[in-house]
Design a binder for these strands. Structure first.
Lengths: 220, 220
DNA sequence: CTGTATCCTCAAGGATACTG
DNA sequence: CAGTATCCTTGAGGATACAG
């Protein structure tokens, strides 16, 4: 993209950050993504070519550093982009309409966010598998979360453990709960269903910290 | 531009704000621009077609409101974008290299920023014309600032009043002073020259508040 | 899995002319 | 001045194949 050609630091920051995908990549790294694959799972619609190109640009600009096999790491300048990313997220949460068409939303990005927003401290000590069924999708609508206090995995096939809990919900309701547009009780009322032992069903909502901006006060 | 298709408010905010030019347009409105022409003078390289299209998008999104002949106005949501814009400018000022090639920088945008960052309170009571000569440009390198406590105008021809003061400088030095990369004394030392009555020459640097982010502490 | 190299398409957006 | 309508070019970026 051509530079704006302005002296202004807003314009100059946008020369770097304003290209498509770039800020989302920074978001993934800020949220703990380390490898090429981590970033891709958070941004499923980016092409490999594009992601590689953008990571190079960020390295050249001194925002990201390549760490060989360990993947990528934000520099201090990169970590300081939290202010920009956070301002964008807060503004969006405050002012954008709650609803967007779930048909156009990428559920894998949502589930990837759920994976990383698990509160490990609150998980049961034994491995727990949650089967998540998106009821308004025909195929490929099932994912599994393997929850262990040491680590969480998101799988598109049953990871081999017995299923401890099943969540059935349409996309709108899951998204609305995750984004903080609905409380857990409201989501249950709107059709989110849990199947499994009562103790796990009660505990389930506590396992998740929800979306980073779920608690931002809305103005819309 | 196609939507990112993510539930995340960062991505959704970028669906709106991430298109080329959009944030710069918001910046101009935040800095007091009201009319179509105001915005264009702050972003000389945008085409009329593009500016009209972007303003429509911002209106549709509820960030800007059309005010008939008075031009455009940010809504409350729009004014709240100050957080995003300010985070970008602060980050850029802190982390981006000071120098960029002046050949690629638009001096009209700089002079337009000077026009609006005049401290009216400190101006002499009588109309004052400052002739600004950019010494490293061949033609079209002269502009005039007509300073009056009621209003400031930027002209590309002599506005008719006698010239009270002349500033001669290359672009790098003017930009560096304006951005806060050099103090006024350093800029003088680097070649910024003033011609005119000593009282006005002494007063000159006080008339300007410089760039909005000039005082941000640098990390680079 | 983590990329790179190439090709090819489509649409963003600049230029121009026209209008109230 | 403040736009709108049309045309046309260019390059962003997706798809595919290939490599370490």
């Amino acid at each position: 993209m051509k530079s704006y050609g302005q002296f202004c630091s807003i314009a100059r920051a946008l020369d770097l950050l304003g290209e498509r995908w770039t800020i989302l990549i920074v978001r993934e790294l800020l949220c703990g993504g380390r490898t090429f694959g981590d970033v891709r799972r958070g941004i499923p619609r980016i092409s490999k070519t594009m992601l590689a190109a953008r990571l190079h640009e960020l390295c050249d600009a001194g925002v990201v550093e390549r760490r060989g096999a360990e993947g990528y790491e934000l520099t201090e300048a990169g970590r300081d982009l939290m202010g920009v990313v956070s301002a964008l997220g807060t503004w969006g949460q405050k002012w954008l309409p709650r609803e967007s068409k779930p048909d156009e939303l990428d559920m894998d990005a949502l589930l990837w966010d759920m994976r990383r927003r698990v509160d490990l401290e609150r998980l049961p000590p034994r491995p727990t598998v949650v089967r998540i069924e998106l009821t308004d999708l025909r195929r490929g609508a099932t994912r599994w979360l393997l929850l262990r206090p040491s680590e969480v995995s998101l799988c598109s096939t049953n990871p081999g453990f017995p299923e401890s809990l099943e969540v059935r919900t349409d996309r709108r309701t899951l998204i609305a709960w995750w984004r903080g547009d609905l409380s857990y009780e409201e989501a249950r009322h709107r059709g989110l269903r849990l199947d499994g032992p009562p103790a796990l069903r009660r505990a389930f909502p506590r396992w998740f910290q929800r979306y980073l901006f779920a608690d931002v006060a809305r103005e819309h």
